[in-house]
Simulated scan of single mutants.
Amino acid sequence: MTSIPAPGRDRLPSLTGLRFWAALLVVLYHLSRQVGTVPVVSEAVWYGRSGVTFFFVLSGLVLAWTYDGAHVPAKLFLWRRFARIWPLLAASTALSVAVWAVMDRAVSLKAVAATLLLVHAWFPEPVMFTGGNPAAWSLTDEAFFYLVFPALLALLAGRRARTWVWTALAVTCATLVLWPALSGLQPTTRSWALDYLPLTRSLQFVLGVVAGLALRRGWRPPVSLPVAAGLVIAWHLALIPWHHAVPDALWYSPYTASQWLSAPIFAALICAAARVDLDGRRSGLGGPWMIRLGHWSFAWYLIHEIVIRAAVFHWGKPAPGGATLLFWAGVLLASLAAAGAAYQWVEHPAERRLRRIGPAAGRPRHPQPPSPVRTH
Rank of each mutant, 00 (worst) to 15 (best):
L63C: 07
A234Q: 05
L326K: 11
L207D: 00
P87L: 06
L325Y: 02
L61V: 11
T172L: 12
W86H: 13
A273E: 00
G321P: 02
L302Y: 11
M128H: 10
A267R: 02
A214G: 14
T140A: 06
A268F: 03
A113T: 12
I233D: 08
M1F: 10
G184H: 06
A168Y: 05
L15Q: 08
P126H: 15
G208Y: 01
P370H: 10
T167R: 00
V107L: 14
L58E: 02
P226K: 14
A229R: 10
L116I: 04
Y301T: 03
S59A: 14
L215W: 05
A211E: 04
R374V: 13
A113I: 11
L207H: 02
L278F: 01
L185V: 11
R160C: 05
V41H: 06
L63R: 03
F55H: 03
L155V: 13
G36T: 13
V165C: 06
Y29G: 00
C173W: 07
D279T: 07
S32A: 14
A360G: 10
F54V: 11
S371M: 15
S283Q: 05
L293Q: 03
L197Y: 04
W122E: 05
G294Q: 10
P187R: 13
V223D: 10
A74N: 02
A361K: 15
V72G: 00
V62E: 02
R353E: 03
A273G: 03
V148P: 05
T172E: 11
W122S: 08
H120G: 10
L25T: 01
T175W: 03
W300L: 15
L152P: 00
P222I: 02
Y47W: 09
A341T: 10
L197F: 12
R162H: 11
A98Y: 05
W79F: 07
A311M: 08
G330L: 09
V165G: 04
P222H: 06
V52K: 01
A181W: 11
G131F: 05
T140K: 05
R365I: 13
G284W: 15
G218K: 07
R105T: 14
A22M: 02
A106Q: 12
R374W: 04
N133K: 04
L336S: 07
A311R: 09
L31G: 03
A257D: 08
W289P: 04
D141N: 15
W251Q: 03
L325M: 12
S50D: 01
M103P: 00
